[in-house]
Computed example of a mutant assay.
Amino acid sequence: MAMTVYKYQAQALMRDYLLADPLVPYTSVLVGIVLCKMAYDLTRILSSFYFKVYSSLTKIQRVEWNNRGMSSVHAIFITAISLYLVISTDLFSDRLKGPITFRNSIISTFALGVSVGYFISDLAMIFWLYPSLGGLEYILHHILSVVAIAYTMLSGEGQFYTYMILISETTTPEINLRWFLDTAGLKKSNAYLVNGILMFVAWLVARILLFMYVFYHIYFHYSQVVQMHAFGYYLTFVVPSVLFVMNTMWFMKILKGVKKTLSKWP
């Protein structure tokens, strides 16, 4: 009986507060920030128990270790949601009538808010510990992400393109694993080599080829894109373009790193 009461109370909380249409953007951002804190602390606790190298790290290395654990959790979450909404649902399907640029749902808006909460949290840490957790390129990347995701969350416009771009977060766990292995002194391990190859392939697919498809889609749906508000219209072109340039520059570095690693491998 008590469990039934708690169940109804939880459902009422979700319906009347967390998922109430006017409150979704704000509660979701708050949820994202809280989840980031939880992921950060959980990474710290688990790492102290299961990874001996963690105790030998410097204070700033531990902070970065925990931060990368947090970012990996976000990447897995937002990639899964993005793939689900883009591929497994009809929200952005061509079978539906009406401009794809104006389609949204409570779930899609809530997930974007969680992502905004993450980028705000991570950006705050980057500023607080600058430049230990990243330089100007990371700040630019995160500011563009916050502005673009927050706009599409609040306006409901362009969520399809936002989720297509967010699929690129699938490369984050590989990047973080590379840092973990390097920090743990496993740069010569097979795991490091395999992860490097996976990172190269994932980056090529999710941050180069996928972006090309996004540009292709925008071109052939320009009549729908042009219906967006001016700010959203410009974001649709500016943000993917800037990120694509940054992705290409980073990809060249990854390519050089893979070549260097393979040349030294026995």
Rank of each mutant, 00 (worst) to 15 (best):
G232K: 10
H221S: 05
K253P: 11
F211S: 00
F231K: 03
M228H: 09
F215T: 00
Y233N: 01
H217I: 00
F237Y: 14
A206R: 00
L243T: 09
I254M: 10
L193P: 00
L204R: 03
L255C: 15
Y222M: 01
A191M: 06
Y222F: 14
G232Y: 07
M246R: 07
L210F: 01
W203H: 05
F200N: 02
M246P: 10
L235R: 05
L255W: 12
A202K: 00
N195I: 05
Y233Q: 07
K260Y: 14
Y222L: 01
Q224S: 13
M212R: 02
P240E: 08
F220P: 00
T248H: 13
L204I: 02
P240G: 12
T248Y: 15
V242Y: 09
L243Y: 10
S223D: 13
G196S: 06
Y219L: 00
R207N: 02
M212P: 00
V201N: 05
V238S: 09
M199F: 12
I254Y: 01
S241R: 02
Q227D: 10
S263K: 12
K264W: 05
V239E: 05
L210P: 01
Y234K: 10
L210E: 01
K253Q: 15
M252D: 15
F231Y: 11
M249F: 14
H221G: 00
V238F: 15
Q227M: 15
L255V: 13
Y213N: 00
F231C: 10
F237P: 01
I208C: 03
I254W: 05
V205I: 07
V205L: 09
K256L: 14
F237A: 10
L210Y: 02
F200K: 04
V245K: 13
M228L: 15
L198H: 06
N195Q: 10
L243F: 11
L255F: 15
L262Y: 03
L193D: 09
I197C: 03
L198A: 11
F251C: 09
L209C: 07
L243M: 14
V238Y: 13
H229M: 09
V242H: 04
V226Y: 10
L235G: 11
V242W: 04
G196E: 04
K256N: 13
R207A: 02
F251K: 12
V205Q: 03
F200P: 02
V242T: 13
V214W: 00
I218T: 03
A191R: 09
Y192H: 07
M252E: 15
V205F: 06
V258M: 12
L210D: 04
V239N: 12
M228D: 06
M249C: 14
L204F: 15
L193K: 09
A202C: 08
